[in-house]
Design a protein around this nucleic acid. Structure first.
Lengths: 349, 349
DNA sequence: GTTAGCACTCGGGCAGGTTGAGTGCTAACA
DNA sequence: TGTTAGCACTCAACCTGCCCGAGTGCTAAC
């Protein structure tokens, strides 16, 4: 399926994409010859460019402008032309500096990660806090509020805390809730949420009338609490960097973009998809099947702990993004976050 | 200090502000006469407008444009001219609809409130989740993680959950942590955080060597956990509505604005200040001493439960904001949120 | 296959003219 | 004395025609 290009075609495509990423302006034939001082004339370059356009890698905004890469052009560039260098020791340290002396919640750490990604890439950083379903059970707690309501608090293995309000149909005392808490913690410890759900279902079936009424209640409530998924949260940081990009000068498009950022649900979908795949993923333009953010590309990687992938992070920028710079940043940051979330775990088992 | 205006001056100022709020374009003398079909000629209006300009209520962008209200003009308008109508039953229902069938966390409820404020006002909604210091203690819990770390989880009376990672300098078992949990819950129940801090300090002093080593440890850890404040969170929803306003068409200013939204810390300050005052507050333009968001006004109100004020919410819009529409919305929403957070509490004591 | 030359295209910038909304001033009027 | 009509003036917004330069595609020569 991939169309093969000869050496010269590749060189010219690369030069154009590089130039366009750097300048944001259509690249002409003269510019190509001069920049990579190739030993060919502009006329020759023009011929090649015409070919590349026909193949769908380039487009011209109008007759007398230069060429601009198409999404397919970026795709080819990323897949076949780009060589990614490793980060220098110093760059790594710049990233790590964001986490020095860090305290507080896991959520805050992930939000800070978003900020770090943004400031390093100078595009928008995005971090998805894992959906609860994909985490591993560590602790459950019931706290009785008034008005027949209670709070269920889950803690995941990685230290993530999520809570949910539930209605108690009969009034249970805090003491009773504590007993339930203990029972559930013993029963569910170390399972992932899916397993926990199944366990609860099985227990409820098996024990039927046998068990203590309270235990039954406990199973019922925890089942109810785990039933609906707690939606994955997404942090988007540094979205304002888009305001500098000339290609988003049009207010209408900018508005669409920001609304997409506010809505988030579609983004969660996309990130979920990328999470399954693992490794650094690159979604270019409309290929992200998310046409609300036309003209945007997304570089993601997932972070994980010993139990497997737990979330996804990345950078959203324009199609014209400095891939060679951003890819290693995303890659390294994902690994770093994995390490940080793990550090409390690897001594564990 | 307030300059007095005669009846005609007031009428004309009001007409100009109304018109400008509606249209966003400088208002001329003819428009004033026609709109409120006053029985005076444009020439007369011009004389009055010149006076109003001299007094600092109006300004003209350039010679042949109409007049535009200054911040002082808005101030006068809001303080002396504006009459606020109550919301209709239907409008109230529109607001309430956002909360129907609502489940989940208190935080989610507050975030939804931000969205409601935004969609109702068509500006940006802002909700400050209370700083932990200003809440009332309900429950504390230690969850042991690995690597000598533990999670402290606080629950406030209103059902707000916050957590914090702490380092354990000696390895405590989960059982020991549970005992600590029980002890602290008994000791601190019903206090606000400030009182809790004092109580801890007092206990630690009084009991010195007497108490169980574990209890001591409990006091020490909880003191440490309560020491630094958990920063107030702020939700800003619907910021993209600013992209439609012609007065923010300039990219530079828009960028400043969004960066201010991203940073939040200065906003927290401002909201804190307004929280102390109570009631509906209106900050106009640079009077908000927050010059990063020049041209923006802020309408806030605080929400409370039986224990007092617990947070602040409001709307951020341009100076040219429909005050008569937004003020009652903010007012009613604050009261509604108070009621919702209370509903679990009033049956309590 | 490569290159030079050339006619052609098209956006951007500049200058000038027109329009219309709105002002300030002056003089007349009640 | 306050109000009004009239008028000259100002100024942004808009349109128009113009030129310029960057860049193209094509053709013919190397």
């Amino acid at each position: 399926m991939t169309i093969e290009l000869n050496e010269r075609g590749r060189a010219i495509l690369e030069a154009i994409v590089d130039d366009y990423i750097a300048s944001g302006e259509p690249v002409g034939s003269r510019a190509v010859t001069r920049r990579h001082n190739m030993n060919i004339s502009p006329a020759t370059v023009r011929n090649v460019m015409a070919d590349l356009e026909e193949m769908g890698f380039l487009a011209s905004p109008h007759t007398s402008a230069g060429r601009v890469p198409t999404e397919q052009g970026y795709r080819y560039y990323v897949d076949s032309l780009l060589q990614i260098r490793d980060l220098t020791r110093q760059e790594k340290q710049t990233i790590e500096k964001h986490y020095l002396g860090r305290k507080g919640t896991v959520e805050a750490l992930l939000q800070e990660t978003g900020k770090a990604l943004s400031s390093l890439s100078s595009y928008a950083g995005i971090v998805m806090v894992p959906k609860f379903t994909s985490t591993v059970f560590r602790h459950i707690e019931f706290v009785r509020l008034s008005g027949g309501r209670a709070l269920v608090i889950f803690v995941s293995q990685s230290g993530l805390v999520q809570n949910k309000l539930i209605e108690l149909d009969e009034d249970l005392s805090q003491r009773e809730l504590e007993q339930m808490t203990n029972y559930l913690n013993e029963t569910l410890s170390g399972m992932n949420i899916q397993e926990a759900r199944e366990k609860i279902a099985a227990e409820m079936k098996r024990e039927k009338a046998l068990y203590d009424k309270l235990m039954k209640k406990a199973l019922e409530l925890s089942g109810q609490a785990l039933e609906e998924d707690i939606e994955g949260k997404v942090f988007i940081e540094g979205a304002s960097s888009f305001l500098e990009l000339p290609e988003f000068a049009e207010v209408g498009q900018m508005k669409k973009l920001f609304q997409a950022f506010e809505q988030k649900s579609r983004l969660v979908e996309l990130l979920d998809k990328s999470q399954e795949a693992g490794g650094v993923q690159i979604f270019i333009g409309s290929a992200n099947s998310y046409n609300q953010i036309e003209g945007c590309s997304l570089i993601t990687s997932s972070y994980q702990n010993v139990h497997g992938t737990i979330g996804t992070l990345g950078v959203i920028g324009p199609n014209r993004m400095s891939y060679s710079k951003v890819i290693p940043i995303v890659d390294y940051t994902a690994k770093l976050v994995s390490r940080l979330l793990e550090s409390g775990l690897d001594k564990e088992k």
